[in-house]
Design a protein around this nucleic acid. Structure first.
Length: 275
DNA sequence: AAGGGTGTTGAAAG
DNA sequence: GCTTTCAACACCCT
């Protein structure tokens, strides 16, 4: 599920469901996903009460009295809130049992997700250590910022926009959407971009992510969730997942190509390379 | 029915 | 440094 709008949807949903709950116990069924010492993680989290849930890019931060749990969903991580007495489903790797009889379960088929306990005021250091860049909504995400990041590289625009150290929050779906809106071919080299292209990328990123958050994100692989995190943005997709269908703008069939190793949807007529 | 693809990230290789 | 490739893992599709 996990680009910025999906993670934000999870954050908002969990905020309503579990803030102010106290963790009675933690069970780890796949210890490898915990960064650092597992026993330390369990000891730190046990008896802590959730104060708030924040998000930076695609990372979730669960704030407790004495520290923070950072969670990344990677490809397929999901959270469920349900009675602690429910049977433990396949692919549940972490189970937090609350004092009130409910539980928070982390479910991840591919086991790529991670969790880590960090100190109470460690969010800034964490962002710095992982070199997480600015989100499109950040007031510092400006023409100057992006131009500076792009000026010293000749990479293709798609891999650049996927680079979380440059733009935090865009992933494979939304980058395809942004580049379609901007009429830019994903293989365009960034040094070929005009000033107006960069401005367009900024506004399109904000528009696409904003709309996706409004609609609760995009659900491509269908799944049922007790969190209700299945979104509705998949109905708004302009190019992504539309291989062989006519472009909404010109009618040309949408193609699927590979860019930087990632499956990429593109309208060969509307999205042109510069130079 | 085996092999390629999958919404991510970071480590390794060049 | 920088850019590109690949591995971590399970499942689905062709």
């Amino acid at each position: 599920m996990p680009e910025l709008p999906e993670v934000e949807t999870v954050r908002k949903t969990l905020e309503h469901l579990i803030v102010s709950k106290t963790i009675q116990s933690v069970q780890l069924f796949y210890p490898k996903m915990i960064q650092g010492d597992c026993m330390d993680f369990q000891n730190h989290v046990t008896n802590q009460t959730i104060q708030s849930i924040k998000r930076v890019g695609k990372y979730l931060f669960f704030h407790f009295q004495e520290g923070i749990v950072v969670s990344h969903l990677r490809m397929e991580g999901k959270y469920y809130v349900q009675p602690a007495s429910d049977p433990i489903q396949k692919h549940v790797h972490v189970l937090f049992s609350f004092q009130d009889g409910q539980s928070l379960r982390y479910h991840d088929v591919r086991k790529f997700g991670t969790m880590e306990w960090i100190p109470l005021h460690g969010m800034k250091d964490y962002v710095k250590k992982h070199r997480i860049g600015l989100e499109p909504f950040d007031s510092d995400f400006t023409m100057g910022y992006l131009q500076a990041k792009l000026s010293r590289t000749t990479k293709m625009i798609k891999p650049v926009l996927l680079d979380q150290t440059i733009v935090a929050g865009l992933g494979n779906i939304y980058v395809d959407e942004v580049l379609f809106i901007c009429g830019l071919h994903p293989e365009t080299r960034v040094h070929q971009l005009h000033h107006s292209d960069i401005e367009h990328i900024i506004s399109a990123s904000q528009a696409v992510l904003g709309k996706a958050i409004e609609l609760g994100g995009t659900t491509i692989r269908s799944y049922v969730s007790s969190l209700g995190v299945s979104g509705r943005f998949q109905n708004e997709l302009l190019v992504h997942m539309r291989k062989g269908e006519p472009c909404y703008s010109c009618g040309t069939f949408i193609e699927k190509i590979k860019v930087g190793g990632r499956g990429t949807y593109v309208c060969p007529t509307c999205q042109t390379k510069r130079g």
